[in-house]
Amino acid sequence: MLAARVVQDHGVHVEGINFYTGFCVEGHTHAIRSKDQQRPKRNNALWVAEQLGMPLHIVDVIEEYKEVLPRPRYGYGANLNPCLDCKVFMVGKAREWMEANGFDFIVTGEVIGQRPKSQTRDKLPVINRDAGVEDLLLRPLSAKLLEPTRPEREGWVDRERLFELHGRSRKPQFALARELGIEAWAQPAGGCCFLTDATYSAKLADLWQARGSREYDLDDIMLLKVGRHLRPRDHFKLIIAREAGETRFLQGYKRRYPHLRTTSHGGPVALIDGDWNEHDLELAARLVARYSSGRHAERVELEFEDTEGRVRPLSVPPMASDCVPDAWYVGGDHGDS
């Protein structure tokens, strides 16, 4: 946001690009969970664009990102976040967009040393080189600490009026925001993507491990954001809704996954993912019953529905909570948040 504003102040026409990988934090969980419905649902990038009075293009890179995430050349960060590869990819996409739309250069808000792995001084040139942008990438917030780029040499922007921010502290950026008269400043301190989240990454790693492959589709990665994920056996897992909003959301997947729902008591919908057998079905039903309001009843009645819509009744004793081993909760996440 700051970087775009700084360049605007040089009289340059700036348009924003926001890449949607499928892992972005925006929106989803808010939309799904009823308890989050009250929170503002605005899209941050759009909000920023509006503050700056610039058009914003949201680009779908879900498919292409499937090539970036599984085998990152420069490895992962603390979790499954391939930040350096991700930046190379996004700057490369921005270059394509710039060329296709007749723009002259690219601006990013990177600050030297702000992120431990992907924004160190020696990593920035890697992004330029691998993304093929050479000296057409301007980082106005740290520009004075970097070699002059073409926009500076050509006088499209005035290098003297750019900045020399560096390091992890965000204070200088806040000060700059104030100076520019930006009151509300939307810059998430952490990642804006689920891949920086330890629990989410553990769920993704579990999915890859269970499938024996690092392929995924959009539904897979959406479902990792929803419900309790329990893997009682290596070959199948359950996704159990935690509340009404999630139940509605999971119902949207009932032609893709077989599911269980309680009938004798109020309870969640649960999807079954994997190669389960008859024996597993009983275990699955007992677990779902444990999360229904019949958890203390002798028996709970359920319905099992396969992906063709065939329904079959089941009746099971709910599993006692102390019989559910911790290890079954994927990523150690009990889903109580």
């Binding site: 929106g27 649902k41 759009l46 509006e50 914003l56």
Partner: peptide, 16 residues
């Protein structure tokens, strides 16, 4: 069906 779109689509329209 996503209520978030009621914010995002108008915001997108405004900036364009």
């Amino acid at each position: 069906t996503d209520p978030g779109a009621l914010e995002d689509i108008p915001a997108w329209c405004r900036v364009h």
